[in-house]
Design a protein around this nucleic acid. Structure first.
Lengths: 337, 337
DNA sequence: CATTAGCAGTCGGTAGACTCGACTGCTACC
DNA sequence: GGTAGCAGTCGAGTCTACCGACTGCTAATG
């Protein structure tokens, strides 16, 4: 083993030890936890070099080393490949998806909780961008006198609905419904569908209202963020500077839109793991995000992710998001189940 | 002013000061903040008596007094009547409800956030007990080949929907739909509706599936808890013993069912404010809950509440939940708007 | 009898001094 | 290049002393 290779091993060991114990890792700890065939003095020399290169840092002079964000990055890029989930957890995931018969919203919500449980960190599930989902069918249904329900079935199995006030019924309603379907089917829910007049002013009015309601609301829903395991963030307190940091994090998660666009942005750039200062968002300076997209019928349908402190078991988190996203995609395959 | 009356005023002052400053209140502070016409020595005597009676306590010998849960209780019962919201906040509430055009779920969710913002505490909104809401109409609609949507409109304006697989269409579907409506209309969504066979085995099968899906899922939805302002809990850290307490609280809020049944239970017993140890739930020992039911068409439709530390501005919280619940009820009045 | 002034007593919190021990960096040597 | 060993650094914990914020009590007063 040449020197460079050994230094890489030292870095790996430091990351693993630090993730496990949360305490700065001493040179001696490294030699004890892994048989490198060199003494602690040599490891010390390696560590000073790793520090010069920016992978490690010392919280204070007479302490061990802890990884920098760059150190974590190296670790993730080099020592994290192809990890599987332990059998127990693998079973837990399978069981969860096998036994589920929930509506989509609930499913996504509970998926986020499953992921939180698996990783002991907060977890998020993001729906697909509204612009990316095609409308499968759309129609208007009278549900009681004076009330019409607009129903839109989307490509990812979601059913959007919107309640409207209207006295239309019978043939008039059918006409409006057909026009509604024509306006939306095959397109996205972007708020600029072209409406073909039916020649019936009442029907046209309802049509316009329905399209407006559905397109504005869908944007809202598809931007929805499902968050699980927020309590873990509080438990991880000590990893963050102050309680105010935790509060700001929770606030951001409640805000939703920031996180949603961040996640989409990361994925657009092909990033699966974003570590500490790599995040542009201030609140996330001490956090890392581990993501995996899930697909329905080959098309990107959304994202699952883990949000934890930079001191996180990345291998485990990656395995967890991979397993969950894959199973979730499979479950969503049959339309609206 | 006789002595008993003065003692009550002292208690009131201690509560107000402690809520404001979070520091134990000294006898001198009381005489300074309110003109009682007596010296601090007299207030000291009053305080020892109030302590003997269980309304106040000393964190340690050489410190001022802080209210006990019993002290807060007395305060809430005697000094909290008929407080209105400050004009600014009153406007904020009115604006929120005036400008809203959201679907019910979103509305409830955002209402919880409004309430959190008003009070600077976490806020919850609980839907009505499933058993208490009557079905207005129910029907089955074909939305695409092989897929049927079950739609149920509830008395509180909610629209429940459930996607089912079925190839039925045309007359068969209409028959099933009519039977579906007959089975549910006017009743509750309790899972024991009586099904009248249509004579058509296919329709009967769909009917059974639809009723099953709707009743089991509705229970889930109506037990849903909308939580706003969880970040406030983290910010209130210092009011709680440890960060673990905060974590447990967040967990409980995520669990939902505990809180929902607790809130219903309190309201059933006519309780609006539950203070610290009055709560049976362990996690809430350091918390208080301030509740107000909201009504739709005279019937109880749900509850809004504030969840904060026992050291809370009860007058303000009571005013806030009252204002929000009233406006929310009014907004929900027209069916499904 | 209620109220008050004043004083002694209690205790938490903070600052400073000191020690312990866990590391590293360096140097001399192999 | 690798190693042994020693000097140096610094955080964390402990102890002490002290300050100041209150109270409780007592004796005096209207």
């Amino acid at each position: 083993m040449d020197a460079a290779q050994r230094r890489a091993t030292v870095l790996k060991t430091v990351v693993e030890e630090y993730v496990r114990t949360a305490a700065p890792v001493a040179s001696q700890t490294v030699t004890e936890s892994r048989d490198l065939g060199v003494s602690s003095a040599t490891v010390r020399n390696d560590m000073t070099q790793l520090e010069r290169e920016g992978y490690l840092t010392q919280p204070h002079t007479s302490a061990g080393r802890i990884p920098t964000d760059l150190g974590y990055r190296y670790f993730v890029d080099h020592f994290t490949a192809a990890g599987g989930l332990p059998v127990g957890q693998r079973r837990a995931v399978a069981d969860f998806f096998a036994s589920t018969h929930r509506a989509l919203e609930d499913l996504l919500h509970e998926t986020s909780q499953l992921l939180a449980k698996l990783t002991s960190h907060a977890a998020v599930v993001v729906g697909p961008d509204a612009d990316a989902v095609r409308v499968r069918t759309a129609q208007l249904v009278a549900i009681e006198p004076g009330t019409v329900l607009a129903v839109v079935v989307l490509g990812n199995g979601t059913v959007e609905r919107e309640v409207l006030r209207s006295d239309l019924e019978g043939e008039q309603l059918n006409r409006a419904s057909a026009a509604f379907d024509a306006a939306l089917r095959g397109g996205t829910l972007a708020p600029n569908a072209t409406l073909t007049p039916t020649g019936d002013p009442d029907a046209d009015a309802l049509l316009a209202a329905a399209v407006h309601a559905v397109t504005t609301r869908a944007r809202h829903v598809s931007d929805h963020l499902y968050v699980g395991g927020v309590s873990r963030l509080a438990a991880e307190q000590d990893a963050f500077a102050t309680t105010a940091t935790t509060a700001r994090l929770l606030e951001m998660l409640e805000e939703q839109v920031v996180v949603v666009s961040l996640v989409r942005d990361l994925l657009d750039h092909g990033v699966n793991v974003s570590i500490g200062s790599e995040n542009d968002v201030d609140e996330l300076r001490d956090c890392s995000i581990v993501l995996a997209p899930y697909e329905v019928e080959g098309a990107l349908a959304g994202t699952v992710g883990v949000l934890g402190p930079t001191r996180m078991d990345y291998a485990q988190a990656l395995a967890a998001v991979a397993a969950v996203s894959q199973q979730l995609g499979r479950l969503l395959l049959p339309p609206a189940r």
